[in-house]
Design a protein around this nucleic acid. Structure first.
Lengths: 337, 337
DNA sequence: TTGAAAGCGATACCAA
DNA sequence: TTGGTATCGCTTTCAA
């Protein structure tokens, strides 16, 4: 059955070496305060001598908890090339590891709420699930309903109020970026949205609209181009916007990639950024620093988002009911606006 | 002990419902061919009715295999912002999932070969470990020596010949990029290397040197600037190169980010790309398509690298000894050279 | 405060 | 081809 290469160390051996029962060994490792200090010392000493390593499968079988938290990322081509998800995940991983939990990464399509991924998540194989970038939240709800702790990165739809989430304040961010364009004197401000099916895309657009209201500028629907976070779509949309609205002098793009695309399109039409048209992005990923002109953008704390999600998960697991957290954004002014 | 919310389903229940023993149930699920077809059907039927979900912890305890493969990424700030690792990991994850294995992601510093990460990896908590971007391979060797299947993404140092690895053909890639510069007429070609402590950095430099030899150009050591993959270091190095070697007319950068930095530095000094100085990058990540001028670069199959690593791992686990795989590169000609 | 013993759910050996 | 049963390592109840 069990043929490992390392000499497997168990409670039985510690028990023998330390001259106590297995029960006592277990108590010591689980921090039971009622064990006599001498025995505690003896157990630790024996464990060290043997080079004891716990067997998590055995513990999992016994306790029903696996020590694993799944991070589920929607399998979308855009997810891969975007550094965003790697950063989020590393934030999650770091916090979990500090708390003795492991990060199980699943990159999978989330449209099937009855497929293998769904079954896996519902079968108590993991102690919790962190969902990222959800379009449809049917799977999220199904998993949550099955009793597994769930945290969503992003904001779930309004009727799923019982699901814990952490998110960037995208409305404020969208407002911030758009408002900056008005403040520097733009009169005709367009936007290239992200995927409106995600809360991030929708909220950033709301912020765009809010900035119009606050600045007493009438919203022109023709200046809203519905994108999907990708360079290619954004570029095409920007070219169209330029063709139909030649007087555009400012663009708020819902992510940095789209902002880059907008700039490319603008320059392709012989106009200059920021002199003719100012452009603001969102995310403050590496590209915004490295592009020329360097991108003025709305910064969000991406690693922090992952950490917040992990922290929320830890609280839920330990029986608390944390408030959902909304991380703030910051305007980073560079050259493009 | 075990308080899950779902009604837990076990072999015992299937056994009862189907009127066979637990042993038979086990045989059916493990594809034992000696079971009578009628009983196979009965077991599957019962399992479906109950909504059976296997308990992996129990299986793990019994078999000693956990169904988990760790992907260990060196915790380096640069690792986070670079989309490279996210793409590699998603390649790994996809292949593993198709084979019923899960991806355990660990983002951790790898300099400590006696810390918690090391212990975890050696304790048979995972069925295998895929290491990415290793500087020092002491931990890798230690884990491999402990009997855990190991695959390295990148090329281990020469004296670790027994470790399986998958890598991009970085020498050929470096050659390809540099050679292109010579072919389009460059006379004085500089390079900004990656981290020479990694095989990728070293091999791309070797390719750079090889191209000189093949083109009968004497290698000028002053044209080699030792970078670390980052934008900032590359930009500083490029500025220095320009100051000390004003006749540079071509640059091979070891990754796209460094190429972007080189272009930024070059334009800051009032020269144009590619007219005055041609620039070639490496990776073909998103930035190379989105930058202006669009980057001529050496493309490597990043997701494929992850997939190859996972496939190698699967073979090793099933007892084979696969050859190490070297993936080929391709020159993508855009505008910068 | 401690120990003995009964599980947790699946596997695999042995006997039939 | 099938069933009974010991076993994996740890937790937890029950008695002492």
């Amino acid at each position: 059955m069990n043929d490992s290469t390392l000499p497997r160390s168990t409670y039985a051996e510690i028990s023998e070496l330390a001259g106590v029962s297995k029960s006592t060994v277990s108590r010591v490792f689980n921090g039971d305060s009622r064990v006599h200090p001498d025995r505690v010392a003896a157990v630790f000493e024996a464990a060290k001598q043997i080079g004891y390593r716990p067997n998590r499968a055995a513990r999992a079988l016994s306790t029903g908890r696996t020590g694993l938290i799944a991070v589920v990322i929607d399998d979308d081509v855009s997810a891969l090339g975007d550094p965003f998800w790697g950063m989020v995940t590393s934030g999650v991983s770091r916090v979990l590891m500090q708390n003795g939990l492991q990060t199980l990464l699943m990159v999978a399509p989330l449209d099937d709420d009855d497929g293998p991924v769904a079954h896996y998540l519902e079968s108590n194989e993991v102690d919790g699930v962190i969902f990222a970038q959800v379009h449809k939240d049917t799977l999220v709800r199904k998993v949550a309903k099955s009793g597994v702790p769930v945290v969503v990165i992003g904001t779930p739809s309004d009727d799923a109020t019982d699901i814990h989430f952490v998110d960037t304040n995208n409305v404020a961010g969208g407002y911030m970026g758009t408002n900056h364009l008005f403040k520097i004197g733009c009169k005709t401000v367009a936007t290239i949205t992200g995927d409106i099916g995600t809360s991030a895309g929708l909220h950033r657009l709301k912020g765009f609209e809010l900035a119009h209201k606050e600045n007493n500028v009438k919203l022109n629907k023709n200046l809203i181009a519905y994108g999907n976070w990708s360079f290619d779509s954004a570029k095409i949309l920007m070219l169209r916007l330029l063709a139909s609205n030649p007087d555009i002098d400012g663009v708020f793009a819902a992510n940095d990639i789209s902002a880059m695309a907008a700039i490319a399109a603008i320059e392709e039409r012989g106009k200059r950024v920021p002199d003719d048209i100012a452009v603001v992005g969102f995310d403050d990923t590496l590209v915004s620093q490295t592009s020329r002109p360097a991108l003025t953008t709305v910064k969000q704390d991406i690693v922090g988002l992952g950490q917040a999600a992990a922290e929320a998960m830890l609280e839920i697991i330990s029986g608390e009911k944390p408030d959902s957290r909304i991380l703030s954004t910051e305007l980073i002014i560079r050259q493009s606006a």
